[in-house]
Design a protein around this nucleic acid. Sequence first.
DNA 1: AGCACTTGACTTGTATGGTAGTAGGTTAGT
DNA 2: ACTAACCTACTACCATACAAGTCAAGTGCT
Lengths: 230, 230
Amino acid sequence: MHTVKSPKVVAMGESVGPQVYRILRERIIQAELLPGERLSESDAAKSLSVSRQPVREAFIKLSEEGLVQVLPQRGTFVTKISVASVMDVRFVREAIEADIVRLVAEGHAPETIAELRRQLAEQKKVPHDNRAAFLRLDELFHHTLAAAAGKAYAWSVIESVKAQMDRVRFLSVDDMHIGRLIEQHERIVEGIATGEKAVAEEAMRLHLREILKSLPAIARSRAELFDDTE
Amino acid sequence: MHTVKSPKVVAMGESVGPQVYRILRERIIQAELLPGERLSESDAAKSLSVSRQPVREAFIKLSEEGLVQVLPQRGTFVTKISVASVMDVRFVREAIEADIVRLVAEGHAPETIAELRRQLAEQKKVPHDNRAAFLRLDELFHHTLAAAAGKAYAWSVIESVKAQMDRVRFLSVDDMHIGRLIEQHERIVEGIATGEKAVAEEAMRLHLREILKSLPAIARSRAELFDDTE
DNA sequence: AGCACTTGACTTGTATGGTAGTAGGTTAGT
DNA sequence: ACTAACCTACTACCATACAAGTCAAGTGCT
């Protein structure tokens, strides 16, 4: 039964609601949908060839994540990036990942360390202008640490929270100084390998605070994307 | 089945969906809706005198929190309590609250310390059999710490995550040794007052690990409420 | 008796209709 | 010209109808 004539954006095998959610989430994080932009249940529904209901469910999820703001009877808008929100998320992330990396350092499993070193080599191979590729590897690095600590759930919490940070990272096109970030990764792995959990933890905390350095400059240069009520 | 033709359980002034969510969430946490129990969009809608749609949205939110499990075309069930899930949540909570209490200890604001001591006195006044009252004060205590650290967002993350822990706490009727918990609170406040952030942090970590001690016994005595596939 | 199949009463997922409310441009009144 | 009332075109929210899948009881054949 191939009744699909319309250019359905969604695929089979999974409910439509979650698919719409992921599509919109990705577009917001990658700044394809700009902060402040107005969305609409019916417009989004039409453009995705689905009904309004799944779109509505997606909007609700996005609003819980703080990516959109739903104003009843008025409209739904992509939230502007808020410096305060980014810092709030960063704090939570640091707290969780600090404990994770300490656990990994305690475990000092050889295969984990080998895997992390493999990833470091991979990261160094990325050309300095290919930002997206490095961001993927960075994501993998942190995810690997969580998995090594046996904290899959903690990672899922981080994932649901870090969207606000990711939006900023997609903006910092120019001076990402990938080299420095890799050095920080190396220090983390080093601390793990030597079993110095305090060293590893502190390296992770510093690593996650790196975003704070670039944030003010980005907020100034792309002021129209940021919330100015703070 | 006595269906109360209740005159609108929901109130005015707020959307129906979130209200339904809170009502069901409360009932699940307080074990009024038992783990394993089957829910139904239409039944819940009828008993609350609303339509299926807001109920559906509530179900989705609850499933994201891990309180219910939605099986398409089959049914929606209150999730059984999982020892692994409780420990996962506890880990995240410890990581965040450890950093929070350290911040508070660094700030050593006199009015905060005074407020915490006031709450300690309040906690001691609670009769040892009034579990619910103590749980409310305990909740307030931790919330106050987060607020004092200026981490409202971090607290909201904890709130959305700790439902799994709260379900267990409502079960541990008997040996809650409220006294010991208060002693732990006192040690936390002491660490904050003296500015020894390492002491305060460690006290918080021990406090949040307390649940692990009672968990195995509860899982054994109320095995029918727990997931046995682990 | 025992197995294959049908049927119907459920379930959640999706689509659509109807309502109250807001925003903004336009028009009538001064 | 200026103000105020209205009017239209939107919005999200809720209710309801329909579609598709699941499961178990029941039926008829072997």
